[in-house]
Amino acid sequence: MTVAKSLLNGVVSVLVLTVLSGCSSTPSSSPERIQQALETPVTSENEEYVLGPTDVVQVSVWRNEDLSIAVPVRPDGKISVPLVGDVQASGRSPQQLADSIETQLAQYIREPQVSIVVTSMGSNEFVNRVRVTGAVQQPTSVPYREGMTVLDMVLGSGGVTPFAAQNETRLYRVHEGDVVAIPVRLGDILSDGDITTNYSLRPGDIISVPERSF
């Protein structure tokens, strides 16, 4: 799960750009992949945090205040540490980052002890957002909250436009490193009260409502 989570930031970034560029007509994924994606539980809050770009970390070196520093994770996934220079941070847990810095500092000081505190979780906030785009009144991106559904997001965006192909809506979800396209019968939800496809959402989900072809 840690490997998948370390890749999630990049996958979500690509997914956002792809959907916004007009992949709303993408065919649905296979029934097997759809079922697997729908059964994926929400990531446990107790899972170890994985660092990513825009996070800010406090690097503390015991008895070496001059080497302690608060620094953001750069877009290339690295941070700069006194004596050591650039260190890969993105994709690592705080403890893994601390271990890496300790190993490199050992060339300069005796038995270094490094601790890492994440003071700003910018990358986590980006990855965990839920988005709706396409033929809606107001494309929307909001932080994930437990219990959110497709209908919640559509209503929060002001509803669909008169040109929406409601029953061709897709829910895009990252599952095991792949993007799964899940069909949503949005017209049935809004007009008939059929909530069969009013799926519960997961962090990083994107709902795309296409326009009708004339």
Rank of each mutant, 00 (worst) to 15 (best):
E32Q: 15
S141A: 11
T2V: 13
T2A: 12
S208D: 14
V127A: 10
E32W: 05
E168L: 08
R173V: 13
Q104C: 00
S115P: 05
E111C: 08
N64G: 01
V12I: 15
P27L: 11
Q96K: 09
L7I: 08
P94E: 07
P82V: 07
Y199T: 03
T149S: 11
T119M: 06
I195A: 14
R129V: 02
Y199G: 11
I182C: 12
I79L: 06
P203H: 03
L155C: 02
N64E: 15
T197E: 03
L67I: 02
L67K: 01
V84L: 01
E111Y: 15
Q107H: 12
D188P: 05
S29H: 11
V71G: 01
A37R: 10
Y199L: 05
R74Y: 06
F163T: 07
S29N: 07
P112W: 10
I182M: 06
S30E: 11
T18W: 15
L105Q: 07
P210M: 14
S115Q: 13
T43M: 12
P31S: 02
I34T: 12
K5C: 09
Q166R: 13
S120F: 15
S29I: 10
V160P: 04
V179D: 01
V59E: 02
Q104I: 01
W62K: 05
T149G: 02
V42S: 10
P31A: 07
R129L: 02
P41Q: 04
I207L: 12
A181E: 02
T149L: 03
A89F: 10
S25F: 14
I69Y: 10
R202A: 09
S157T: 00
G85I: 03
V71L: 03
N9R: 09
R63C: 01
Q36K: 14
V142C: 00
S80T: 14
V84D: 03
R131Q: 14
G77A: 04
V61Y: 08
S21D: 14
V209M: 08
V87C: 12
E146H: 12
F126I: 12
E48T: 05
L20C: 00
E111M: 09
V11D: 08
Q107I: 00
G158I: 01
Q104L: 07
S13F: 06
T161A: 13
I195N: 13
I182F: 07
Q88Y: 12
S90G: 03
V57F: 12
E125C: 03
N128E: 13
E65F: 14
V179C: 11
C23T: 10
T18V: 02
S30Y: 09
V56N: 01
G156L: 04
T161C: 08
R212G: 07
S13P: 04
T18R: 14
T2F: 05
Q58Y: 06
S29P: 02
R74N: 02
Q96W: 03
V118N: 14
S80G: 11
Y144R: 04
S90K: 13
I189S: 06
Q166H: 04
I101W: 14
W62I: 01
T149Y: 07
R129N: 06
T40W: 06
P112A: 09
V61A: 05
F163W: 13
